[in-house]
């Protein structure tokens, strides 16, 4: 019987080695270890074995079964791994094929810049406010220290609906509307962004409609230095950490002192290049200390408070940011343009 066991074991081991697939191994398991299998057959003859040999033989039979089982398991695992490897290798794809198309839309570059500006000022504690685009003469001019016949009305030639109602030429009317709402509360820190309209000839840098970013700060002890500081933060957030702000004397009826506001060219850092047309500076727009008469129109006492304000063209900032050379691209709404953002 010992020989029988050894023979079956050797035969089984050879058969296992020779079997090519995991499925065929399963058949071998039945053949050797199943209820009608070879090993079981041998063990049926155990009754004929003398009692004192039985423990040793039983042990041998178990060892044989375990050995076959172990080999079967090893071989099955090896074959399954090999089969899986083979299958996976066969599932090769052309990795260079394009990825599956998924929709991607775009937000207009102007919207993106406007959101960026708003987020920055909200972070500084500013409220974003809104005002009508179609305005009264009072808010667009009179309250801003531009009475009828003031020469400044010539430089902002307006579109009228009626003699007293017009398309606003600037976002500054929102200053007065906001002051009227808030006075005498302090501090006032607001921005507004919206369309303004002027009868300007259209060229690569001017349109008869454009977006303006207006800001207004009113409090006790506000200085022109504060204006420079606030605008420096804005310019750095939009155009880079190293840009500087430069104020040049200018004139606006609703601010005094008034300034044109430039940032150093982020491309050449002020050295002069093609982008800044050699000047080293890029014009952002007007700014200044709120004129006392405008404070009065808004309900504040210029002897107690002071403030600063600015109004910049958003198109110009957007063009600056993306290097767009012609303002008209922004309003062409050509999808080949829009899809770039």
């Amino acid at each position: 019987m010992r020989e029988e066991l050894k023979r079956v074991k050797d035969e089984a081991m050879r058969a296992i080695e020779a079997t090519p697939t995991a499925a065929a191994l399963q058949e071998l398991r039945v053949k050797y270890l199943g209820k009608k299998g070879a090993l079981t057959g041998i063990l049926r003859g155990m009754g004929a074995v003398p009692a004192d040999e039985r423990p040793a033989l039983g042990q041998l039979a178990n060892d044989t079964r375990d050995a076959i089982e172990a080999r079967l398991a090893d071989r099955t695992a090896a074959l399954e791994t090999a089969e899986l490897d083979a299958r996976l290798r066969a599932e090769k794809v052309d990795l260079t094929l394009p990825g599956t198309w998924l929709p991607r839309g775009t937000e207009h570059p102007m919207s993106q810049v406007i959101e960026e500006i708003k987020a920055m000022f909200v972070g500084l504690g500013f409220q974003v406010v809104d005002g009508p685009e179609v305005e009264t003469d009072y808010y667009n001019f009179e309250a801003l220290n531009i009475p009828k016949d003031h020469p400044a009305r010539d430089t902002q030639d307006s579109f009228f609906i009626t003699p007293e109602i017009l398309l606003r030429t600037q976002t500054s009317p929102v200053q007065v509307r906001t002051m009227e709402k808030l006075a005498p509360r302090l501090p006032v820190r607001i921005i507004t962004i919206g369309k303004v309209y002027r009868r300007d000839e259209v060229d690569p840098t001017h349109g008869s409609v454009f977006y303006q970013l207006e800001g207004l700060v009113i409090d006790r002890d506000i200085t022109m230095g504060d204006l420079k500081g606030t605008l420096t933060i804005m310019a750095r957030s939009l155009f880079g950490e190293n840009v500087r702000i430069r104020l040049r004397p200018s004139y606006f009826p609703f601010t005094e002192p008034s300034a044109e506001t430039d940032t150093s060219c982020p491309v050449c850092d002020g050295a002069g290049c093609r982008v800044c047309k050699g000047s080293g500076w890029i014009e952002l727009g007007g700014s200044g200390m709120v004129h006392p008469r405008v404070l009065v129109a808004g309900g504040y006492d210029p002897e107690v408070v002071s403030g600063f304000a600015w109004g910049f063209g958003v198109e110009r900032m957007t063009m600056r940011k993306y290097g767009i050379e012609d303002l008209r691209h922004l309003y062409s709404n050509d999808v080949r343009f829009l899809r770039q953002f």
Binding site: G125, V128, P187, M224, G229, T230, R248
Partner: peptide, 28 residues
Amino acid sequence: IEEVARLYGYDEITTTLPQGAITHGGQP
């Protein structure tokens, strides 16, 4: 005041930030 500012030089004015109460920003 504007005449003083321009002859003193806008460039010479020290850059500062508004002081005063902290406000929370937001939009409509």
